[in-house]
Design a protein around this nucleic acid. Sequence first.
DNA 1: TATATATCGATAAAAATTTATCGATTCGGG
DNA 2: CCCGAATCGATAAATTTTTATCGATATATA
Lengths: 209, 209
Amino acid sequence: MSGAISKATARRLPMYLRYLKGKAADGQEYVSSAAIATDLGCSAVGVRKDLALISSAPGKPRFGFEVKSLVADLERYLGYHRFASAVIVGAGGLGRAMLSYDGFENYGIRVVAAFDNSPAKVGAVAGKPVYPMERLPEIVKRNHVEVGILTVPRSSAQAACDEMVRAGIGAILNFAPVYLSVPEGVRVKCEDLAVPLAQLCEGLAVSDK
Amino acid sequence: MSGAISKATARRLPMYLRYLKGKAADGQEYVSSAAIATDLGCSAVGVRKDLALISSAPGKPRFGFEVKSLVADLERYLGYHRFASAVIVGAGGLGRAMLSYDGFENYGIRVVAAFDNSPAKVGAVAGKPVYPMERLPEIVKRNHVEVGILTVPRSSAQAACDEMVRAGIGAILNFAPVYLSVPEGVRVKCEDLAVPLAQLCEGLAVSDK
DNA sequence: TATATATCGATAAAAATTTATCGATTCGGG
DNA sequence: CCCGAATCGATAAATTTTTATCGATATATA
């Protein structure tokens, strides 16, 4: 069952996918666990264990794993069992950057639109619409949006969060550097852009190794 | 010694800091491990263990921990033993958003400037300068920059990365969805904005619990 | 065809992390 | 002044995750 994948492994899968896509683009057919481990800075045994969990075809001795097949497996695992719609609340610099980011499709996520209070921000970015906040409930309902990305300034984060919850959004990815309080049942994941950078700076980097 | 903090704990510290700052802003003097755990969705025992590692003052039975003191301890731990300078390469949407992001100071990181190939992007954002790529080595050297944030499109990522390495940058935070190859000794940490979102979408969220 | 080698997959050991338990401490209320 | 509730800190158990070991397998090459 797909639920049998540990948290630690699940965190690494996207890394493999990205790496393998690079190899595929280079025209490489096979890749060994040792090569992956060296390049990604983790252990070969760990790589094999992780891949064993999602790979449909076994690795071939003396060759390694077939890149194309692994990519397919990873994409299936990472994006298969869902096709979620998301909205962005806050069309400032970060919000607009995410609106034009093209990496979400890989994970089965469709960013529907962005919202902002400021009339100046309303319009479109990268072909995606930016609506005034009032229209949030309507759009959420119509598109069955379950996930919201919060990219407003710290001061308006809680208010925007409340609006999202009222509109029926059940999971929020919060980029504002504040703690949000939400009603029972709503999931929040905080993401602070400074954190990975800080980890990188640490002498003892807390890498995802 | 400060090196005795486990990776798992180190990953959680920023979360505590943010949460506690919120409480401090609300004027709350004390907070119990149980309250933190409930709000943050983790276990109270874990919270106590984590805090024990960085807290200078012990928690008070019947009250909990002193918020102000914990904030000070966390800030000291997270940002004290370094003061790193960073640059941003790629002044597109994400790059500019990060240039105007004010959360880096909390972690002892100073973003010095951004760089871009396109003359149209050169100028200033949020009071920080945007230089043409040619000036990267000079600025890096002058400011002793050790860390670079890579926010260019996928296609130019490797080239930009190479330039950063040549300029003397030893650690790179990569936001482009590609695998970068770097010489021995250079650290790379990849950050894909879609990943946390994907985790949030998963039925079995891989939260940082 | 036989052999050496690179690689896998499985099992086992070690390490790290989380969770549980429990006595000790402090304060508020009777 | 004593009792009970709330909370901590420490120790111990359980779980998860990583790392090590080793035989099996497939391929290239002599």
